[in-house]
Design a binder for these strands. Structure first.
Lengths: 399, 399
DNA sequence: TATAGTATTGAATCCGAGC
DNA sequence: CGCTCGGATTCAATACTAT
């Protein structure tokens, strides 16, 4: 839902404690007017000019106060700002939400084209993360261990002796004791996410547009499915789109008619591919496209873009015709995937087709597969089957 | 030179405009006493406990004012702090040096060992960079282009057409014109420098010791050889050591006798850790090929480095024990791979082992596999087998 | 000497005991 | 109930040892 109104006016009409998370990216105090032309030559701009900083800060502060009111007690607020006025904005947050509710200073870093000026190239923006109370909702995202870490070592339990020296814990027989299952490294407050590429598909031609991955991270760590996400300065609506793509309810507000038009247009058909996080769980924090690419790479494929039925072709031909490859999407049943690949493969006159099955769905095992199609379970499924069997056998043989 | 005195007292004795650069790393307002023991059991500590924030800020402010006085007009000041009080400190800098002399908010990021907490793991500190005037000294450091940059493209001159779009400049014959030699990418304000490791030789046992690399960067960009570098809260003297190592004159001041002792000791033989990580980069720790990484990724593995028998562990335990994964190397026969995995897996008490077979070698198919090991062909082999069979069957049925 | 494998260590954080 | 204090846990990155 996107509303065209001064957010202050709309907020006043909202109920107390009705929102789970707020992301706001207010106009920066740049004293300049931001303009940008899109591919069609339309020009967008927004007034980002204030008579004084006090005026600017007052403008923000009354809105932040209202935002606190509509936020649930378990809720969080993320304020995105640039280095120009970040310290003043944080003072406001300290005052309104209380210093004790400061959670993190998130640094979004990116590499950018240099316009070599004197000084260091600015390559980051700051997002302040405050919660309303200390009973805030938080989902930890676990990331990979550093390559410098010796994983096999930390899988062993350890003790410290009286002098504080560490040693491996051993049982009576002198054998090492295993540690509990490891979850990975909790995510840091420094996020390296590429700056919205000038050619990116998701770009809709609005200034200061943020990458969707940034918003998805914020949404994941602070909300669950079905929660309400509010963006009072929504601009082109990235936060609302990210919320909808991840089954949260998004409310966007913007005073600019043009912005609301763009956001609404975007919401009508949010690119599925825009969503970069795996739906299967926060633990497996990986980009879907990365996994798909990895599989296609292993198979020695040319990658096909924008084809619902085919993700790639084997570089090698068989019977003088290409072999199409498709990887089952999380949203597709095996049956649907087979049908999509079959249609697309026949159209391209493939001699054979390969479907990589990524879901272990017994109900679908009995569907008919075309004669020239090979269905292969991905490694995870193969292994799960074999592991279950193997461990079961081991139990039996132990009797 | 290191002086043991309250820096305010010493600064008052210093001449106007006598210093080229100031780095200060004052107490962070942690409201804790920072302590650390060195290898010999000596304990060092400094108090960072205040009656109020106002008291803390006043303490800093009078000193910052004096610092401005002793700084040359071409000089710069770098204030190191963490997120606890950074916004207040920046207000002081704005007030004393003027907002117009704000140059950069430098983010020092690092990975760090830590227990997991609710929320994001803090992985950065902030250094505010202000200059005394706009005629400040600055040496640009150029860094390497990122591997994704298309070097040959940026070597072509560009023009903007009437609509403001960029295009490659061409000569009469329509050939592209080469741009002037590129120097690299100017350094960003986000610096990834490893945190001083517990095992680093550079460590002298003083709390909050900073890596020399960090100080060297600051010194490079803001001073020339022979310039005077002042650190009014020098602690173990990292800034002074870095200055001396780079032929600048370093002046360190600290109120703690012990700190000054350590700093002086360090200055007798200034030493910079030969950090392998810094020298060779994180990439050199990543020993897996792209395909290997892709497989481990798909299997949801933690990646294991420097282990001949194991490439990764499944993140999930089976039977309360880890499952080891190995990918057959091109140089290994299946037999050898099985043996290596078996030995390593048993040592780590794995409940099961998985070997991904990457070579289609019939001779090896008859070797014996341990009961708790699963051998799976990689996709390529599976597909090749099935394709051959399929296409053969199709031929037969065509007859 | 190069590589594989093992032993340490700091300090942020949580948790539970004691008051 | 809120405070402090001690103990346990965590992992990045080194040094050291064995082969």
């Amino acid at each position: 839902m996107v509303i065209c109104e001064d957010c202050l006016d709309f907020l006043k009409k909202m109920d107390n404690k009705s929102v789970d998370m707020i992301y706001l990216d207010p106009p920066f105090f740049t004293q300049k007017t931001q303009t940008l032309k899109d591919a069609q030559g339309n020009e967008y701009s927004f007034g980002d000019v204030w008579n004084s900083r006090t005026e600017y800060l007052d403008y923000i502060k009354v809105r932040v106060c209202e935002l606190k009111r509509v936020l649930k007690d378990t809720g969080s607020i993320f304020l995105h700002c640039d280095e120009k006025a970040s310290h003043y904005l944080r003072l406001i947050l300290d005052e309104v939400f209380g210093e004790e509710n400061f959670r993190s200073e998130i640094i979004w870093t990116y590499k950018r084209w240099s316009n070599s000026k004197k000084g260091l190239l600015s390559g980051h923006q700051t997002i302040f993360f405050y919660s309303k109370t200390n009973k805030y909702k938080f989902n930890t995202i676990y990331t990979a261990y550093s390559p410098t870490t010796n994983i096999d070592q930390i899988l062993q339990e350890r003790v410290r002796d009286d002098r504080g020296k560490a040693a491996y814990k051993c049982d009576d027989k002198g054998e090492v004791i295993l540690a509990k299952e490891k979850k990975g490294v909790p995510m840091s407050d420094v996020w390296e996410i590429p700056f919205l590429n000038p050619k990116a598909k998701e770009r809709v031609g609005y200034p200061t547009q943020k990458p969707i991955e940034l918003l998805e991270r914020i949404i994941y760590i602070s909300t669950d499915e079905g929660d309400v996400v509010l963006d009072p300065f929504c601009g082109s609506g990235t936060a609302v789109v990210a919320a909808e793509l991840n089954n949260r309810k998004g409310i966007g507000i913007d005073i600019s008619k043009k912005a609301v038009e763009i956001a609404e247009e975007r919401l009508k058909k949010p690119y599925k591919t825009e969503s970069k996080l795996l739906k299967t769980g926060i633990e497996s924090y990986k980009t879907k496209s990365a996994v798909e690419n990895a599989i296609l790479n292993q198979l020695d494929c040319d990658v096909v873009q924008r084809n619902k039925g085919i993700d790639g072709f084997l570089k090698k031909y068989y019977k003088n015709a290409p072999v199409a490859v498709k990887i089952q999407k999380a949203s597709e049943s095996l049956c649907e995937a087979v049908e999509l690949l079959k249609t697309a493969g026949e159209k391209k006159k493939c001699s054979a087709m390969i479907l990589i099955c990524t879901k272990d769905d017994d109900l679908n095992r009995h569907i008919s597969i075309p004669k020239n199609m090979i269905v292969i379970d991905d490694y995870k499924i193969q292994i799960e089957h074999e592991l279950t069997e193997l461990l079961c056998n081991l139990c039996v043989s132990n009797l």
